[in-house]
Each structure stands twice: as C-alpha cells, then as structure tokens.
Design a protein around this nucleic acid. Structure first.
Lengths: 284, 284
DNA sequence: CCGCATTGATACCCTCAGAGTATGAGTGAC
DNA sequence: GTCACTCATACTCTGAGGGTATCAATGCGG
C-alpha cells in the first residue's frame, strides 16, 4: 500500500531543514537527482505539494510545515523503538540517565545510591551528553530519564522540578565588576557568553547555530582572561573554585531550575522508582 | 546506516500479534520465507533476539515486548504524519471530528455552529467511526479531535470531560423486568449484550475479538425479541424511542462520561478553539 | 542586455534489497 | 515410528532506488 517510509521522511526533513536540494543531498551522502525524485515521489503519494521550488529558491508549503513537525516526531518515535529495544535486549538492561556533566546539583550520587535499594531498580547508566542533548536523547529513546535545566516545553515528556537555585556570574578576579558584591544584568551589557550571545540576555536564548563548541577548560581560560563571562548555578561553582575566577550574584538574573524529565508514556517501573526517589531526595 | 524501516516494524508487529509466521505472512499478503528472513534481519540489525522460536511455537522475548509497544506508537506516528499532511494540503483544510454516531449527547450541532463563529475555525468534517475507532483515528492522525465515552487512558492524548449522564438499559416491553421502574445489575445476571458479553459486567469490558458486528437496526430487533439487552446513555434513548422497547434505569450501573480528546502535542489553533467552545457549551 | 553561474529536473543505466518458489529439518502428537 | 506442522535455507528474479551526464530556468554582474 501507499505507506510512508522512514527513508522518505528522513529525506524530506533534510530538504525542509536545508531548503536546498544540493546541500540536503550532501548531508544525506547521496546525489541530488535521486533526492529530487524521492521528494517528488513522496508528494505524489501524499497527493500534496510540500515545497514551492523555483530554480533559485525552495520554500515549504503549509502542508510541508505540518509534515516537518510530524515527520520529526515520527522519526524520533522510530528511533526510540530502536534504542529501547536494544537496551531491553541486553543481558541486564540499564536505566539510562542523561545529564550534562555537573548539572545535577550534587544530587545524583545520593539519588543513585538510594535508587539502588528500590526493588524495581536496574543498574544505572549515566550518559553525559552536551548541552541540549538531553531532550533529544529522551525523545530518541537513548535515555530513560534526564536531569536538565528547566523549563521543558514538550508535551510528550513528563516533568518534575527538583530544585531551584540562584545563578552566579563567573568573572576574572581582576575584573572591576568583581570588586562589587552584587551586580545587575545591565552591568554586563557589553559582555559575551561562551556561546557568543550577549550576556544581558541572561543566557536563556538558544545559542546561534554557529556557536563555538567550548569545553570547560576553554571557558575558564577565557573567563580568567576577561574575554567572556559565564552564568552558572551556585551548586556548579562549588565544583570549580579557581584562584583566577570570582563568582558574584546577579540580582536580576532568573534562577536556574533543575528538572527531571521522562517520556510521558513510559510504563517502566524502573523509571517510576527513579522519579519517586529523586523527588523525595530533592530539598523541600 | 542501520536505520529501522517502517516495513520492518509492520512485519514485526504482525508476527508479534499473530505469534505465527505463516498467519502473519498471510495477513501481510506475502509468503512466509521472506517474512522470516526480514525478522531475522531486524534482529541482526538490533543485535537483539525478539522471538523465541521452536518449530512449534513462537513467543516474544522481553525485548520483543518492549519493541511491540514502541513499534506500535512509531507506526501510529508515521501514519499521523501522513494523514495530517494530506489534510493540511487540501485547498481548505478541515477540522476532523471523530465520534460514534449518536454519542455526542446532542451537543455536536451546537458546538459546530458556535465553533463556526470562531476566528480560528476551519470547516468541520465529522467522521462517524465504529465503536473504538475514535482513539486509533486520533493516534493515526485521521482525526484532530474526538468525542467518545471516557475514561481515556492514553498519555499521548489530552482529555476534557464534557458531561456525565446515567445509562439506561433497553428491554423488550414484554420483558418481566420492564414492569419494574428500577433495576439492579444483578437482575440482568443471565442477559447478554450486543457484543456477546454478559450484561452484569456493565458493558465496560472490551468486547471479545470474535464479537459480532451489529448495527443499530439489528440491536433493536434483538432487544425487542428479548434476545439481548442494551446499555445506553440517557441522551441516546431520546433518539430511539420505539414502541417495542422500554428504557429503565439501572441503579448500580456506572454513569457514562462523554469526553473530548485530542493529541497532546497539537499546536493547532483550530483544535484549541474547538476544545474551548465545546467545554464552554457543556452543561456545568 | 547578454552571458554565466547556480540549481532543480530529466534521461538513462545499473545494482542489490527484497519478494517468490521449492524444499529441508526439527518437533510434538498419536 | 510416522505424520503433520512450522520455521529455516537455497536459489532465482524483479524493480525500487541510487549514480552520472545533461538540460533548462532564473537571477546577477559587467
């Protein structure tokens, strides 16, 4: 029957994201003509045009916009089926926890040790993804639960806040602002963050696509040099005390909330137990 | 790349449901050997056995159980992408409302006429599916909202109760029980429902897979003959007053709740407006 | 105003994934 | 022990889908 195939959806998403058949084909490691044909075939099967093409420009039709959204969730669902089945097939399946290193506010060791005593417990596997990889990991079934900064806007996930704590700004000790005991965002108007955005945004914007990838060592070096400033929750600063760096409160900086998230349709008792233990251990 | 394909998932679900390669192949309109090979290939790609096979019996492994669940939701998601894109591509997309005929408690006409005045309104398309087709229609994207009897247990759907009303039992007028003004379930202990289940269950069990498909005319004839009894909400009885049939309250029969359901991840303003209008119009 | 670069579409070919048929092999029932 | 049942294996073949070469349309620079 006229059944959509994963391959077609992958092709479509690539073209919809690039809005350029040549680049999309390159990303898919294939030639441009078969990609054009595959998209035409997809449109024929659906009976719906997905792109407006001129030889100079490709744009999505309204139907294409709808399909882009739904195709992404469908691809996530297929991916989730694959990863979850793989995990379930291991001799001893694991509970896979995704988080960004250090962003657990020191809670994770306690949670894990208490969780291990639960009857439904599985061995815990911690997967330290980069910033912003936690949600995709949940959606694609590469993780069963995630610890990440809130807020989380995803109707397919269930979320429980664990704790809220102020964020501080990391400055070079020699920075004039470091002499003050409390700052305002406006004081940082001309400073930049590690991802290249302006500090006065409070670091809540999505990083630009061309954001430099910087590890902690790079960030600290740049902070010490006064090149950038860095916002981070209080609990993280305790892990990274360095002589050249001062942490100062920013009075009008929104606090950071650590949340626990997991797929809403999870029926796994292992996940349920983890959530229960974590929320019980969270202060207040 | 080792990418799961929709075809493989469809094959897997067929075998997992039939637990028999021959019957599954028949259902898929293909021969048995390529199906066996496809499943082996799937297991090889996942690196996980999905079935325990003897030459006499096929059973799911734990990983297979996990995959069965996730494969179903993935197939639903793919189907949803297809159907929603088709609808969005029509010259004038519709808001597709799924319900079982007569199970709207008379609310639908009012809802539709008030909804039509909303700025975000689309033309409404009513799809009258059989009993139990409303939830699949939502999951597969064949409908945007559904009216159906609660409770609804599906984490991917959002639900709003509209109204709760008592259910009555339809009896032949000559039935001795019809002489009484109020009954108990126990009085109906030896009666059967249209789907072949025992009346004393209250009609809340899932119908058996071999349940006879009966339309309303058949049901009424059988009720008049005293062969079966039939539970139905008060509002429905007003549509089907017949001389040979009496409706009587059953004092310990759980009431019926009409709920409105829609996909939790829907961002459509047309759906939001419909939900708002419907809940405003629902009594209390 | 006219090439020219850019980019999607078309024409044609070729390979291998996946379907079919025939048959083997293991196992439970009588 | 034999038979029926059922999944696996061996082999063949077709067509979906990928590649290369090229055309055609369009916007831009000189």
């Amino acid at each position: 029957m006229s059944d959509l195939e994963v391959r077609q959806l992958r092709y479509f998403v690539a073209v919809a994201e690039e809005l350029h058949f040549g680049r999309a084909a390159e990303r898919l490691a294939m030639a441009q003509p078969p990609l054009s044909r595959a998209i035409r075939e997809l449109e024929r099967r659906l009976g719906v045009p997905l792109f407006e093409r001129t030889t100079r420009q490709v744009t999505l039709t309204p139907a294409g916009e709808v399909l882009l959204r739904d195709a992404r969730t469908a691809l996530d669902a297929v991916s989730a089926a694959e990863h979850r089945a793989r995990n379930a097939g291991r001799p001893r399946p694991a509970l896979r926890v995704a988080l960004k290193a250090d962003y657990d506010a020191g809670l994770l060791p306690q949670i894990i040790s208490r969780y291990a005593r639960e009857p439904a417990a599985l061995p815990v596997e911690v997967s330290l993804g980069g910033r912003g990889d936690q949600l995709p990991a949940l959606r694609e079934g590469r993780a069963d639960v995630a610890l990440l900064p809130g807020p989380v806007e995803d109707a397919t996930l269930d979320v429980e806040p664990l704790l809220t704590e102020p964020r501080l700004v990391a400055l070079a000790v020699g920075d004039p602002l470091a002499a003050r005991s409390g700052l305002m965002l406006a004081d940082l108007a001309d400073r930049f963050l590690p991802d290249g955005t302006l500090a006065k945004s409070g670091g809540l914007e999505a990083p630009p696509p061309d954001a430099p990838k910087r590890d902690l060592a790079q960030i600290f070096s740049l902070v010490e040099l006064g090149e950038i400033v860095w916002f981070t929750p209080v609990s993280v600063t305790r892990l990274h005390a360095r002589p050249g760096i001062a942490y100062r409160p920013v009075l009008d900086l929104s606090p950071s909330t650590l949340v626990l998230a997991w797929p809403r349709d999870s029926r796994s008792p292992a996940v349920a137990a983890f959530v229960r233990v974590a929320t019980e251990l969270a202060p207040r």
